[in-house]
Write a protein that binds this DNA or RNA. Structure first.
Lengths: 238, 238
DNA sequence: ACCTGAACACCGTTCAAGT
DNA sequence: ACCTGAACACCGTTCAAGT
């Protein structure tokens, strides 16, 4: 996010006059998979906001615009990359046990881990690929084993999935913000917090140092516990 | 999000040769508030991705770069705008009743409404201004009235706030995506869904038509119910 | 058919110059 | 001190030209 890089600090001589005439890339040596793999490496090495056609072209040893032969635009390439990452995280597949509640919890952590593993993609993953059929299949199955009927299982699977995905996405995106932005936001918070009038905010004063930070993982754990507890209590099969 | 606008469709003659020499803006006629108000109007009229220094400059009748005298960069301006919107939504302030559970629910809806009111800002609001002291004060207060001690009240206030904010932010951002992107993603989903093998996805097949869509508000309502139910059950004061 | 070169229409940002 | 003009360093995207 965080808008754009400062323009002042020019790096690499960026295409000096004589451009050393890159050797022409062999015919048919490009494909969607090869381009996605190159994009993956670029992001791994330099971060998502350095994923430009220029950078991918360099990584491929090909002209930046050659990518347009295989992807309609950058958005399509990004989605392909996201799908690749998802397949990578979930390749093993979830295995149902005889404890449907434990299964739901394990799955929640798996999804959370996936987002935390690719924090720069977290928002796009949640927004552009909100429904994962494998996950949906697994959670409906778990709820079904808990005794839920079709309608309730489907509704709760959606509710759970939505909340887990949203929370994971935002939390991951928080960690993916540039360090200086995180620091600046933290500073703003600190300053405002210190300036709080205890008379106007008596309950915050009452809580004192107990207030967990924005990135404190205990909040996520608690929230998940609360959710799953209700899910278990409502289960007709209990 | 959705990367960038197509470059092909040039609009407005964008600065033809003779630039009609804008009348020079009066000295000291600019301020942070005036600029934020102008930015607000631009977004209201043309959307967030049309919020450029160029556009704000036009709205102000001033040179685009004159804004740099009052804001360090675009990011700082965006944060100021977000803070203005938040103040607008929460200006009334929450009023505690004698029903602390109802208060928590009302507040959840208030936060959700705020995000849905400014969907284009939803992600930035959740990421850059994750903690709102007024909201925190109110929810800790409610939990305190429910009998929770300092530590538990602070933890659950954070957990609740985090989940409500994340879910609202993602849901709002979903509705803010350009219509063509929404349609394309929906189509992808439909195609994949139709191609599902019932043998491989028996539980999805079992659920059949009960599966709510990604934008179905019932999922959010259910999730909130589940959460609050647990909060109530744990309350020592019950 | 596939890759390349050059151009185009934007962006945010900097900085010297005007007033 | 504040506003303006002109330039700079990027971007994604298009399209005619090469091979």
């Amino acid at each position: 996010m965080a808008t754009r890089k400062a323009a002042g600090q020019a790096k690499a001589p960026t295409r000096t006059t004589g451009t050393p005439a890159r050797p022409r890339r062999a015919r048919d040596s490009l494909s969607r998979d090869i381009i996605v793999a190159a994009a993956d490496r670029v992001v791994e090495r330099e971060g998502l906001d350095r994923l430009t056609f220029q950078a991918i072209g360099e990584e491929l040893g090909a002209h930046p615009t050659s990518i347009y032969r295989h992807f309609r635009d950058k958005d399509e390439l990004l989605l392909a990359l996201i799908d690749t990452l998802r397949a990578r995280s979930y390749s093993g597949g979830m295995v149902a046990t005889d404890d449907w509640m434990a299964d739901l919890r394990t799955q929640a952590h798996l999804i959370h881990d996936h987002y935390m593993r690719y924090p720069e993609f977290a928002l796009q993953m949640a927004l552009r690929r909100p429904t994962d059929f494998s996950s949906m299949e697994f959670s409906i199955g778990a709820l079904r084993r808990g005794g839920y009927d079709q309608e309730q299982a489907a509704l709760y699977a959606r509710a759970l999935g939505q909340l887990i995905r949203s929370a994971s996405s935002i939390q991951a995106a928080l960690t993916a913000m540039p360090a200086d932005v995180q620091d600046a936001d933290e500073l703003t918070w600190q300053m405002d917090y210190r300036r709080l009038d205890p008379a106007e905010f008596p309950n915050i004063a009452w809580a004192g140092d107990s207030l967990p930070g924005v990135r404190d993982p205990r909040a996520w754990e608690s929230a998940l516990d609360l959710l799953l507890e209700s899910i278990e209590r409502h289960a007709p099969g209990a």
